[in-house]
Write a protein that binds this DNA or RNA. Structure first.
Length: 369
DNA sequence: AATTGCACCAACCGCAGATGA
DNA sequence: GTCATCTGCGGTTGGTGCAAT
């Protein structure tokens, strides 16, 4: 742990890399690949530790790096991703081809954070600063009065689910979830599963983000959202989890919602301290979002209405949700799924870079007491 | 011209997880 | 199971350049 062992063995160079060192490293890796990083400096004739060589390669010498300033689109994407992923710079960087986690981290710390604050948005929570202050006050009061930690108002949490479940056959799947807890006066629990599908790396889902109109969701218009309600009375669900939703709480999402025209109601299984709770779809939102700004939930219809839409009744192919082409609507069909899978296979043949980006799902939990 | 403050960014450090002996 | 080593990640630091004073 800590400093790499090789650093103790001999006095190694630190600090900025000279052009000569860069050339040695570049030549060596171009010819032989990096293999075991710890052996690279010796084989390349460098007085550096393997860790330093690796970092230099990743952050500077790699041929696929994009140079130059970040575009406005890239900056917006980083902000959006940060809202979902937090300081997971490597995961954010994975969505920006040619950019490194270090670069993005620096940009965030030096510019974006400041810019958000100036816009009145808390860079940590991505909520309006005024709301954050209120929450802090409420939290203080709540801590004084509550015997047990409870979920604070409008709390936003993120978690990543390992790419095991659900998955479209043959493809790894990473599920990104964001949960939002609302303490509204409604008496029912609601769970929103917000899905986006994309062919490579650009499609993400964001919901309930408190951005100004200048920060939009422009990457993918193909959004759909399904509203879930618990199938059994579960007043305790997520009410006493001390604000922590862990990745193992989301047990499963029925694959049917990703691979079929949803003749069967999608179901989600969520566990909490008081057991596993099943949720099933109660309504469907089609968000054909091409505008800027936060996503509104629009065109909501009950599940029964959704199943009776002309489109589903006719069983006609929908414009693909899964290819680069912009569809007119966002309904999921077998055809479009297959089309998307075929496109993914093509993409896979070109590169495995996208292996983590095949699908992303965002789950927003809405709880009312 | 010298100094100071700030922004930016490359690189380091410490840690955790994975892997293999 | 334990230990050593390797790899990757995120937080932090320190050097550099530039603008303001």
């Amino acid at each position: 742990m800590g400093r790499h062992s090789c650093c103790y063995k001999q006095k190694l160079r630190k600090g900025l890399w000279s052009p000569e060192e860069d050339e040695k490293l570049l030549n060596y890796i171009t010819k032989h690949g990096h293999g075991c990083w710890s052996s690279v400096p010796k084989l390349a004739g460098l007085q550096r530790c393997g860790k330093s060589c690796r970092l230099r390669w990743i952050n500077y010498l790699r041929p696929d790096l994009k140079r130059g300033a970040f575009s406005q689109q890239e900056e917006n994407l980083i902000i959006e991703l940060h809202a979902v992923l937090g300081n997971r710079w490597s995961q954010i960087a994975a969505q920006l081809p040619g950019r490194t986690d270090n670069e993005i981290k620096n940009l965030w710390n030096s510019c974006l954070k400041k810019r958000l604050r100036q816009s009145g948005i808390d860079p940590n929570t991505h909520k309006p600063l005024s709301e954050v202050e209120n929450d802090n006050e409420k939290s203080l009061t709540s801590n004084k009065t509550n015997q047990k930690g409870s979920v604070s108002s409008n709390e936003v949490m993120s978690l990543m689910i390992e790419p095991t479940k659900p998955s479209i056959e043959g493809y790894p799947l990473e599920v990104s979830t964001t949960s939002k807890i609302n303490n509204s006066s409604s008496s029912s629990h609601e769970l929103f599963l917000d899905t986006r599908f994309g062919s490579s790396s650009s499609y993400f889902s964001f919901q309930n983000l408190n951005y100004g109109s200048n920060i939009g969701i422009s990457e993918n218009p193909n959004a759909s959202s399904i509203c879930f309600t618990p199938t059994s009375t579960s007043s305790q669900i997520m009410s006493d989890t001390n604000s922590v939703i862990t990745s193992n709480m989301l047990h499963s999402v029925s694959p049917s919602i990703f691979s079929t025209p949803t003749h069967v109601k999608p179901t989600v299984s969520v566990s909490s301290v008081d057991g596993v709770h099943n949720w099933e779809a109660s309504s469907y939102n089609n968000i054909n979002n091409t505008n800027n700004g936060a996503l509104p939930l629009q065109e909501e219809m009950k599940w029964s209405e959704y199943l009776n839409t002309p489109f589903l009744m006719q069983n006609q192919p929908s414009p693909s949700m899964y290819t680069e082409a912009k569809p007119e609507t966002g309904f999921i069909t077998d055809e479009s799924c297959t089309s998307w899978q075929q496109q993914q296979q093509q993409n896979f043949q070109l590169s495995d870079i996208y292996s983590k980006d095949l699908q992303r799902f965002s789950v927003a939990f809405g709880q009312s007491m």
